[in-house]
Amino acid sequence: MRAFSYERATSPGAAATAAASTANAKFIAGGTNLLDLMKLEIETPAHLIDVNDLALDRIEQTADGGLRIGALVRNTDLAADARVRRDYGVLSRALLAGASGQLRNKATTAGNLLQRTRCPYFYDTDLPCNKRKPGSGCAAIGGFSRQLAVVGASEACIATHPSDMAVAMRALDAVVETVRPDGATRSIPIADLHRLPGDSPEIETVLQPGELITAVALPKPVGGKQAYRKVRDRASYAFALVSVAAIVQPDGTGRVALGGVAHKPWRLEAAEAKLPDGAKAVTARLFADAKPTKDNAYKLQLAERTLAAVLREARA
């Protein structure tokens, strides 16, 4: 691990200012992804700003009947919150499908959104990766790609976003709240938070330098049957090959977001309009522009079958 200096921030604004005014600084909260990457020298910050003292660890009711989740709320606490379990079951389910008990106790809401890909070529510092070293090329294309993206990818990068939580939040139309170094705040719909790789896969979100996530707001509950189904190589403690977050209403309409298939949670409102016609109609639309590799083409059918299983369960 490279040497770094360390400070504990005392307010969100001060943290954002420090991050923008210090060269090569990073925020650290749970640290479960960042420290792993720092050990491998994939992340090499010169300065860490510990945000754990900021009072961003509460889940509060919002004026419009939704919930505001503080950026530092741990994954365990969010999944176990009685309001989340009752009204946003898809979010509890997604969180519980991710990582291990130990990691969920540390990992935070904002950190989960900002975690880096688990593409094996991003981790292998002996091989090219445009995300790790812009312009070096993509070893995943033509490499071992069965875990990687089938849609929304580019010639530069076929990495996936690894989060389960973010997929559920996309289905729930969550809004990410931030503070910038100049003190200004803004709200970013989660659909707009993560970028597709294009020709700059190293830029993963629309956040600006120093911009700090302070909370994630959920709109008022939408009801319906909520499910998160994750398909992976072992029954627990593994990343998704494909996952489906779904909210199905009694009239057959609903929402669908997929994980494990793209550089961000994959949801198309035009696709879920096809829900009454069944899973095949929905995934046909979701994957209309898919360009899978030989090794990951199986994900198209796997996603369709997983959605079909979720719909069968929701309508039972």
Partner: peptide, 25 residues
């Protein structure tokens, strides 16, 4: 790297991977 759990300790009543957290935190 937080994958095996051999380093699990209990901090303020909760289990965590002690390899994936800095002592100064």
């Amino acid at each position: 790297h937080g994958q095996c759990g051999a380093c699990t300790v209990i901090v303020d009543g909760r289990r965590i991977n002690s390899c994936l957290t800095l002592a100064v935190m």
